[in-house]
Simulated assay, not measured.
Amino acid sequence: MSWLFFLTITIATFIIMEAITWCTHKYVMHGFGWYLHKGHHQPGYPHKFEKNDAFFVIFAIPSILLFYFGIRPELNFLFFMGLGILCYGIAYFLVHDVLIHRRFKWFKNTNNKYLRGLRKGHKIHHKHLGKPDGECFGMLFVPFKYFKNAK
């Protein structure tokens, strides 16, 4: 198979991960996984580590398994699906933990309208301290209204 095919699989998986993340955030994290996610919505955040960080490990498992089965018996498309999930995980970490919650002080002076819109959308999400009535569950694609006058 061609590298263009594998690149397409990686990019498609990355894009599909946003929809999976939205559904997981709304129905798992704000559903039966609220026990792990609850502290993330409480005042006093951010902490170095919190229960919510367990989701990073949980979401890494499919990627690891796809890498493993994607090289057996030879390199195949599963490897590149795992790579798409890994790339999304890295993007999620950089956007969510670094840019939005500033758990690491790497990009504190960004003036990019897209990144400011993402921050604004996530701030609206965190306005709700409880499990119900959440909004804006996405990470890389948020409604356009958050990009207007994003600060």
Results as ranks from 00 to 15, higher is better:
residue 1 M to G: 13
residue 3 W to M: 08
residue 12 A to T: 15
residue 13 T to N: 03
residue 22 W to P: 03
residue 24 T to H: 15
residue 25 H to A: 05
residue 27 Y to T: 08
residue 27 Y to K: 10
residue 27 Y to G: 06
residue 29 M to W: 13
residue 30 H to Q: 06
residue 31 G to V: 09
residue 35 Y to V: 14
residue 40 H to T: 08
residue 43 P to I: 12
residue 47 H to N: 10
residue 50 E to L: 05
residue 50 E to F: 03
residue 52 N to K: 09
residue 55 F to K: 00
residue 55 F to W: 15
residue 56 F to C: 06
residue 56 F to L: 14
residue 59 F to P: 00
residue 59 F to W: 14
residue 60 A to V: 00
residue 65 L to G: 10
residue 67 F to R: 05
residue 70 G to D: 03
residue 71 I to R: 08
residue 75 L to I: 15
residue 75 L to F: 09
residue 77 F to P: 01
residue 77 F to M: 08
residue 80 F to C: 03
residue 81 M to Y: 00
residue 84 G to C: 02
residue 88 Y to C: 04
residue 91 A to L: 02
residue 92 Y to F: 14
residue 92 Y to D: 12
residue 98 V to F: 06
residue 98 V to Y: 06
residue 99 L to P: 04
residue 103 R to W: 04
residue 105 K to T: 10
residue 107 F to H: 07
residue 107 F to K: 07
residue 109 N to R: 12
residue 111 N to Y: 04
residue 112 N to A: 11
residue 113 K to H: 11
residue 113 K to Q: 15
residue 115 L to M: 12
residue 115 L to S: 02
residue 117 G to A: 10
residue 118 L to D: 01
residue 119 R to C: 13
residue 121 G to D: 02
residue 122 H to T: 13
residue 123 K to I: 10
residue 128 H to T: 08
residue 128 H to G: 03
residue 133 D to G: 07
residue 136 C to L: 01
residue 140 L to D: 08
residue 142 V to T: 06
residue 143 P to E: 12
residue 145 K to E: 13
residue 147 F to A: 12
residue 149 N to Y: 10
residue 150 A to V: 11
residue 151 K to M: 02
residue 151 K to G: 02
